[in-house]
C-alpha cells in the first residue's frame, strides 16, 4: 500500500498515469466508430504496420522522439491501408487475407529492421524493443506531453465531427445523399485510428495496442443502444483500463504495461458481457426464465379453464 501512495505522489508517475488514462479514453472513443464500421482488425493491422515506420524513422534520424515516430508510423499506416485496399480491389483475395498479408509482411520487415538496429552501430537504441509490448514507466516528460496533446486533439476532433462520424458509421449512402464528403470523412477517421494506434504504441506496444480500440467499444455496446452513450462509456472503460494497466505494471518489476492494460480491458468486457442490461448473459437468462414462467402460468390457467368447462358440461 505504501508503495502505491509513494508512486502516486511521484510527479513523474502522475504524468504518466494521466497520459495513459487519456490514451485509453481517446482510443475508446475512436474504437467505437471503427467497431461500428466493422473495421476492428484494421487497428491491429495498422499497429503491426507501424513497426517498420518507427524503425526507419529511428534509422534516419538516430533520435528517439515520439513526434518523429508518429510521423514514421503514420506514413507506414497510410501505406498499409492503401496496400490493403489495393490488394482487395485488384485481386480475388478477400479483405481478411489482404490484412493478414500486410500485417505480417510489414511486421516481418519491422523485425528485420529492429534486429539491424540492434546489431548495427546505432547509439542509444536500448529501449526500442520496448515498443513491442510497451513500457509506460520508460516514458519521459516530453513523451507524455506529446501523447497528451495528441489524445486531447483526437477527442476534440471526435466531439466536433460527432454528427458526421455517426452518419458515416451507420449509413454512408445516406451521408452521401446529404452531400457530406464521405470519402474524405472515411479517410479522416482512418487517419485518426492511425494516430490513436501510434500514440498508444509507447505505452501499450504494437502487438496489443489494437485491443484498446476494440475491447472497450465492444464492452460499451453491451450497455446501450445509443451512440452518444456508447462513445462515453467506451472512453471511460478505456481510461480505466489504461489507468489500471499503468499502475499495476509500474508497481511490479519487469511487467510490461500493454498486456496488463489489455487484461484490465478484458475484465471490463467480461463484466459487461455478463451483466449488461438486455444483451448481457445474466439479463438474457432472467428474461428467458420470466417468459417461461409466464407461459407456464398462462398454460395452467387455460388448462384450469378447460377442466372447469368440462366439469360444467
Amino acid at each position: 500500500m505504501d508503495k502505491i501512495w509513494s508512486m502516486l505522489s511521484d510527479p513523474n508517475m502522475q504524468w504518466i498515469f494521466l497520459g495513459c488514462t487519456l490514451l485509453g479514453l481517446s482510443s475508446g472513443v475512436i474504437g467505437c466508430f471503427s467497431y461500428l464500421r466493422k473495421q476492428s482488425l484494421m487497428g491491429d493491422t495498422l499497429a503491426h504496420a507501424a513497426l517498420p515506420g518507427i524503425c526507419i524513422a529511428f534509422m534516419l534520424t538516430g533520435i528517439k522522439s515520439i513526434g518523429l515516430f508518429l510521423i514514421g508510423a503514420g506514413i507506414a499506416g497510410v501505406v498499409a491501408t492503401f496496400g490493403i485496399g489495393y490488394i482487395t480491389r485488384n485481386s480475388k483475395l478477400k479483405q481478411d487475407a489482404a490484412m493478414g498479408i500486410v500485417l505480417s509482411g510489414f511486421f516481418g520487415l519491422g523485425i528485420v529492421l529492429l534486429t539491424l538496429i540492434q546489431h548495427g552501430e546505432y547509439g542509444n537504441q536500448a529501449g526500442l524493443d520496448k515498443f513491442l509490448f510497451g513500457q509506460a514507466a520508460s516514458m519521459i516528460a516530453s513523451d507524455v506531453i506529446s501523447m497528451t496533446v495528441v489524445c486531447v486533439s483526437l477527442i476534440t476532433i471526435c466531439t466536433l465531427l460527432f454528427k458526421q462520424f455517426k452518419i458515416i458509421s451507420f449509413d454512408p449512402g445516406f451521408a452521401r445523399g446529404l452531400g457530406y464528403p464521405v470519402a474524405f470523412l472515411e479517410q479522416l477517421l482512418m487517419l485518426l485510428i492511425v494516430v490513436a494506434v501510434v500514440a498508444g504504441i509507447q505505452a501499450v506496444g504494437v502487438v496489443l495496442v489494437a485491443a484498446l480500440l476494440i475491447t472497450p467499444a465492444v464492452s460499451a455496446r453491451y450497455w446501450t443502444d445509443r451512440l452518444g452513450l456508447m462513445v462515453v462509456l467506451s472512453g471511460v472503460f478505456g481510461a480505466v483500463s489504461g489507468g489500471i494497466g499503468t499502475w499495476i505494471s509500474a508497481s511490479v518489476s519487469n511487467l510490461p504495461t500493454g498486456p496488463v492494460t489489455v487484461l484490465a480491458a478484458t475484465l471490463l468486457f467480461c463484466i459487461s458481457i455478463l451483466f449488461g442490461p438486455q444483451r448481457g448473459l445474466v439479463a438474457k437468462r432472467l428474461l428467458r426464465q420470466r417468459v417461461k414462467q409466464r407461459y407456464n402460468r398462462e398454460n395452467e390457467r387455460l388448462l384450469d379453464g378447460n377442466v372447469k368447462k368440462e366439469a360444467a358440461l
Binding site: Y35, A211, T215, V218, V262, L263
Partner: peptide, 13 residues
C-alpha cells in the same frame, strides 16, 4: 472481426 480481436488480445496478454 471484433470478437477475434477481443479473444486473441486477451489470451496473448
Amino acid at each position: 472481426d471484433a470478437s477475434i480481436g477481443v479473444v486473441f488480445t486477451a489470451l496473448f496478454a
